[in-house]
Every structure is written in structure tokens, then in C-alpha cells.
Amino acid sequence: MFRRGSVAVVAAGLILAVGGCGGGTDEKADASGRALAQPAPTRPPSGELVEWVGDMCVQTSALEDLRAESAADLQQIRNPDEAGSDAHLFAVSYLSRTPSAVDDVESALTELDPSGVPAADRLRNALLKKVKGVADHLDEVPLIDAAVDAEGIVADVDKRVQSLTPPQPDLLALTKKDPQLAAAYQRAEQCSPGWNPDEEAASPTPTPTPTGPLPKAADGKNTDACSDGECEVLVTSPVWITANGMDVHVTPGDGSVTFETPSAVMRLGGQGGVAKWGDDLKATVVAQNKEGAVLKFTIP
């Protein structure tokens, strides 16, 4: 037969045993008294992953700019006040520039090594497939089509360019599911809103542009002096120049001069640029500014 005092001692011991369990730790417990595991901290992303994410942001941005520029070009060629009778020449210029821009993105995506994040690599592969499909099509578009249906050919190319949107889920959506990818996205400066490459990276070989008045051209604005292939003329607006039997359409711009023939388009970035058509003709930009350009035509 137990005494009352013994029962009290046993009860006290049970209370101590239950209440003291786990009392020396900082772990949280749920309603049942079981300890809850703390989430492991996210490891910093590797430098390679940060670089990979940054490169993807650069190419995504390049495609976004290309879509906007292509839409603006199509609008211009549809506006007779802008394109006028030279619509086919504008289309030739567009068809010369656009495939090159798409090819640049394709090359960059092709050279991008696997990131190590399966979902991100699937995104890169899907985007590369879209870009390659458009690039392959544009390589088959002959420039001569622009002379037949300038607006139609540009509209068709623009439609394909507008299809170059990031596959879904895009990179930003993937970061919401992968902590490592999210951390890399935050560290990649190319993914920051409003990011732009520095001036040196954007224009590694800046072209000098005169700030003063243009020098006097030996033949003034007399483009007829170029008929023998040797002349120096001032060009202040779009004009056809016949030199050594070759017809060249010259368009001066604020920072460039464009030379167009039925089979080729060359855009020079200002002073010092040289356009050459085999052994038949060469054009050198002597000086150029917003007022126009002084051009020297010679026979190589």
C-alpha cells in the first residue's frame, strides 16, 4: 500500500520529465510538441551561373529591341511621306540589316554553355530554336524581292521577327521557382531594369564626327562630275550618283552615310568610312555631320 507522500513524488517526477524535454534548445515546436526544422539558407550562386543569366538577359533585350525597330521600319515603309519613291531601297536596307541582327543573337545563344539548371537550359534551347528558324528563313529571302513588293516583303519579315518572344515560362518566371536562379538574376547587372552597356562596349570603334562646318568639296554639289569615276562632291540629301557606269543611291544621315545599289547596301559610320564595289568604284567619306557629307569617288 502506497503512502500519499510517495504518490506526490512520482507525479512531480513525471511533470519534470515531460516539461523538461527539449528545454535546452532553440527549436520551434508545432502544436503536437514536435520540433520544426529550420529552412537551410540559400547558397550564393556560382559566378558561372551569374554570367549565364546575364548573357540570357542581354539576348532577350536584344530581341526586344529588334522587334521594336522592325515594327518602326515597317511603319515607315507604309508611310509614303517617309519612304516615297525609294520604298524599295529602304526595303533593301531593311533586308540587309535585319538578318544580321538575328544571326548575332543566334550565335550568342549557340555559344552559351549549359547553366546547370535544367529549366533554364530548356528555356535557352527553346529560344535558340525559334531564333534559328527565323534566321534560316531570312537567309533565303532575296534582296531582289524588295523591288517587286517592298511593303509585302518587309511585312513578312517583320511578322517573323515579332515571333521572337521568350518561350514561357520565361527567365523571370523561372527565378520564382529556383532560389539559385533568383539569386543569380539579382546579381547579374544586365538583368537590372534600365541597364545599358557602357559606351565603350556598345561602340568599341567610335567614328569621329566633325563638329564644325563641312570642308569645301572640289566639285561642290555637281554630281555629274562623278561620271568618269573621279570626283569629290557635297551631298546634303538622298541622291542618285552615276560614277564609272555604276548607279549608286546615297543617303546622308546624322551619324552615317548609306550607299545602295540594286544588289548591295553599305552603311558607313561617318568620316573615314570606305565603300568599295570590286575594281570598279570606291567611295570615301571625307567628312560628315548632320548637314550632310563630303564624298570622294575614285577608281581603285
Rank of each mutant, 00 (worst) to 15 (best):
K290C: 01
T42F: 09
H88C: 02
S46P: 00
E51D: 03
K282R: 11
W195S: 08
D158P: 07
V9D: 03
V18L: 12
L89V: 11
V286G: 13
V141P: 07
A243Y: 05
T223I: 14
E51N: 08
S163C: 09
S6Y: 09
E260D: 13
L74P: 07
L234E: 12
G54H: 11
A182D: 12
T242A: 03
V250L: 07
G47K: 08
D136Y: 00
L63V: 11
R78D: 11
T258Q: 15
A29E: 13
T175M: 02
G13T: 00
A101K: 14
W52K: 03
A8L: 03
V265N: 04
V102S: 02
K129V: 00
V50C: 13
I299F: 00
E51V: 02
I153W: 02
A68R: 15
Q75T: 13
F90I: 04
C21Q: 10
R122L: 00
E27H: 10
D279H: 07
G13C: 00
N289Y: 11
R3Y: 05
K221C: 04
V7D: 01
D224M: 03
Q180P: 03
P179M: 00
S96A: 15
L138N: 05
N196C: 03
S263N: 04
D145L: 14
L112K: 11
E151K: 15
L128Y: 12
M56T: 11
D30W: 03
S263I: 01
G245P: 08
G23S: 15
P213G: 00
G229I: 09
Q186Y: 13
F90M: 13
V117P: 13
P118V: 00
E27R: 15
K221F: 08
P39G: 01
P213K: 01
G22F: 09
H249A: 06
A182L: 06
R97K: 11
W277Y: 15
V131G: 01
K129L: 05
A126C: 03
T165W: 00
A71W: 02
L268D: 04
A17H: 13
N244T: 04
N222E: 08
E69Q: 15
N196V: 08
L109C: 01
P142R: 11
G23E: 15
D30I: 04
G23V: 14
L127T: 08
A35E: 07
L14G: 08
S256W: 04
Q59P: 07
V248M: 08
V248H: 10
K296A: 07
G152L: 08
